[in-house]
Nucleic acid binder design. Structure first.
Lengths: 211, 211
DNA sequence: CCTGAGTTTGAATCACCAGTCAACTCGGGT
DNA sequence: ACCCGAGTTGACTGGTGATTCAAACTCAGG
């Protein structure tokens, strides 16, 4: 059977996407050459173009592929927790670039910035971005709804609205942390997000933080 | 007089920076060629390199130059208002991409995204970015402090902390609006920012819309 | 009118890189 | 044993674009 061949083919496809994502986070989208990607997975440059129509297509696919990977990992991680509060708190922790070393959020955020820049001029990527970003806000809103359905949270502002606000806050702060801003460290971002989320949803932060 | 000569030189320098900024917002940093900039100010490509050491230096200078210009325009605009509340409300309106057509915030936000991407790998620009961004947060915090000093606002959370939260929220939402996200239009962003600022500082939003 | 420093041009140079292609490898089918 | 074709290679092509440079031009001051 051509199974082995096919399987190799599929592996390669994915392998190249991963390599591309790695190179993009390393060197930046603008500085990413086909040669770099080829080296990253130890093949010749020609092979990259054998599997992908063009460099541009590959790059766009790599960006969304990587984002998808990170999203799925996050969703899996959150699903282990029952309490909506724990889920929300965990989601925030997972979103802070560099807070939890095991989760490569630094890389992911760097990719987001690249996505934004390119989506400004690439309608196809713009569409993808909207889907990805909507999913991201949705996951916050869903936690809020879940907490309300179990009575853990009180009713209040529309859950989607909260998702948008908290999502935007996280985006904005993540940029600063990603940029290594001296005024906004990871722990600082974490604390502010926890505070705001408690405030938006209307619960008290017991652990150690008060206004 | 040698004055005219000198003045021409200075004019050209600035002229090129403006042209560069325009091209960058049009085509994007990655697609900006020296030729484009030259055409934009009706001059030969060689002249660009006569005034700037290299393309890279020019681009970085153009990014900060444009940002500076926008910041100063905003500061001038805000200074006309007395009430801290009006200032804050105006600052928000000015920050929403495309809300007030006279202020080219769409362009400015597009430049911000370019700055972020490049600052990830360019230490010099990274430093500039931090200064610019700090100034931006500061302007929010200053309004809060001003409002408190006149008794317009009650005391509460640290003003810098508020500046950081509101600044980040605006950043995050502005990205969505800039990207033409169907779920986050300009008016929606404006309303959310007004709500959150009222909430953070602790005043009521009576005048339904301070149009 | 000269002159020369400052300005401007555009052609030439140079490096780089996406994408092409002809040749080669090799596992599996016949 | 032989053939087929997917997979792989790496040299090559073509275009692009930053940077250089020598020549031309401008004009304030002598």
């Amino acid at each position: 059977m051509a199974r082995v061949r096919q399987k190799n083919g599929r592996d390669r496809h994915q392998e190249i996407l991963e390599a591309a994502a790695r190179v993009i986070t390393d060197r930046g989208l603008a500085e990413t050459r086909i040669q770099d990607i080829a080296e990253q997975c130890g093949v010749s440059p020609g092979l990259i173009l054998y599997y992908f129509e063009s460099k541009d297509r590959l790059l766009v696919e790599a960006l969304t592929y990587a984002n998808d990977k990170y999203y799925l990992a996050q969703a899996r991680d959150l699903r282990r927790l029952d309490s909506a509060r724990d889920q929300l708190s965990r989601l925030i922790d997972l979103s802070v670039p560099g807070l939890l070393p095991d989760f490569e959020r630094l890389e992911e955020w760097a990719l987001w910035v690249e996505i934004w820049v390119r989506a400004l001029r690439d309608p196809a990527l713009a569409k993808e971005r909207e889907v990805l970003e909507r999913r991201w806000r949705q996951s916050i809103a869903d936690i809020v709804r879940h907490g309300r359905s179990t009575g853990e949270f009180d009713d209040g502002e529309d859950a989607d609205e909260i998702g948008m606000k908290l999502g935007a806050l996280i985006d904005g702060l993540a940029i600063q942390v990603l940029m290594n801003d001296a005024q906004v460290g990871p722990e600082h971002m974490q604390r502010m997000c926890q505070e705001v989320s408690a405030n938006l949803i209307g619960f008290e932060l017991e652990p150690a933080a008060s206004s």
